[in-house]
């Protein structure tokens, strides 16, 4: 099996897919670092101080002003309310929710890339792991070997898991190193609140506790990895089912974007919560942002994603081992 994984790695690296992902990440991180830097500068100009308490207070006031506007939609109002309560909670406990520094930037970047950017990068790799063998035609040489088909597919899947891990590590390292140039490399031990809950009655801080940022980051990476594996497995399944890499990418892309659009408009269509795309923002549960449909919890989303993962695995392996290769 190690031999087979080595083979897949050889092919993956020879096609420089990971290099491309690395370049995309670096460019985006530079862009976002600059944007973040500009935001800080503007704020400084506006408030005339770098004190985070003043800034946070200002944000709360801004949000409250917006909420009094009767023309903003209800679910947006709810979301603002939760955010205000959270910010107020931070302020009351005298804890800065966004200590400037590379670890905070990395956390923010991670939390914002979980439902679209990261899945797209993973799709680049997952969607042609199998279908490219068909489009090159090498599948005929690959399968006419003294190796059972499920082993070949499993080696590809293990390669996918490794690639996902590498991409995540890359994301962490690249965003830490690049943003650190501007914001400094400190902030690992800054306190962060974990354990906020959004219940039907509203924002619940009873289980909130302070943990160091590095632990929070670790938790973030954990759930992001899980979400990435599920998206990767689904792309992998499409790659098994569809011969054309382009068509496969199109399908996954359409689903992901549909998810991003839906999450803003489905609060009344509750059965949409079983769609995998709406369950990807696992980090929201950790930092206490409201879910797209009320009543969704971390456990629920993990279960939904696990079911999708299992189905994708079953379909991939049955189809691949049974398929006639023409």
């Amino acid at each position: 099996m190690i031999n087979l994984v080595q083979n897949e790695m050889l092919k993956l690296l020879a096609r420089k897919r990971l290099v491309i992902v690395g370049i995309i990440l670096s460019v985006l991180v530079i862009l976002f670092t600059y944007a973040q830097f500009q935001t800080v500068q503007t704020q400084l100009k506006k408030l005339g101080t770098t004190d985070w308490r003043t800034a946070l207070q200002q944000q709360i006031v801004d949000a409250q002003n917006r909420m009094t506007n009767s023309r903003i939609p209800d679910d947006f109002k709810e979301e603002l309310e939760v955010r205000v309560k959270q910010q107020q909670y931070y302020l009351d406990n005298d804890i800065n929710p966004a200590v400037p520094g590379a670890p905070s930037f990395t956390r923010q970047f991670l939390e914002n890339s979980i439902d679209l950017l990261l899945p797209l990068l993973i799709m680049v790799i997952a969607s042609d792991l199998v279908s490219s063998e068909f489009s090159i035609g090498s599948i005929k040489l690959l399968l006419a070997r003294p190796v059972k088909r499920w082993k070949i597919l499993l080696s590809k899947y293990i390669t996918l898991l490794l690639a996902i891990s590498v991409i995540l590590a890359l994301l962490g390292v690249v965003s830490y190193l690049i943003s650190g140039i501007v914001f400094g490399y400190k902030g690992w031990t800054a306190p962060v609140f974990a354990g906020f809950k959004i219940t039907d009655t509203g924002f619940d801080t009873s289980a909130a506790n302070v943990i160091p940022q590095w632990r929070f980051l670790l938790m973030d990476f954990g759930v992001v990895w899980f979400a990435a594996v599920v998206v990767g497995t689904l792309s992998f399944m499409v790659s098994v089912l569809v011969r054309s890499t382009a068509a496969g990418m199109g399908i996954i892309l359409a689903l992901l974007i549909a998810g991003a659009i839906l999450s803003n408009m489905v609060s009344s269509w509750t059965s949409a919560k079983y769609l995998f795309m709406l369950n990807l923002r696992l980090t929201d549960y950790l930092n206490g942002s409201p879910p797209p449909i009320s009543g969704m919890t971390l456990t629920f989303s993990l279960m939904v994603l696990a079911v999708w993962w299992l189905l994708a695995m079953i379909v991939s392996f049955t189809v691949f081992t049974k398929k006639d290769i023409y």
Binding site: K11, K140, L141, A144
Partner: peptide
């Protein structure tokens, strides 16, 4: 399959690898 070698239609090998890497790839199997 240990006793068989084959080319089905054109030998569609991996163009982005060297000839040697292609052979290493299949030898590992």
């Amino acid at each position: 399959m240990m006793n068989m070698g084959c080319i089905v239609e054109n030998p569609e090998l991996y163009g982005f690898l060297t000839g040697y890497e292609n052979l290493v790839h299949f030898a590992r199997m």
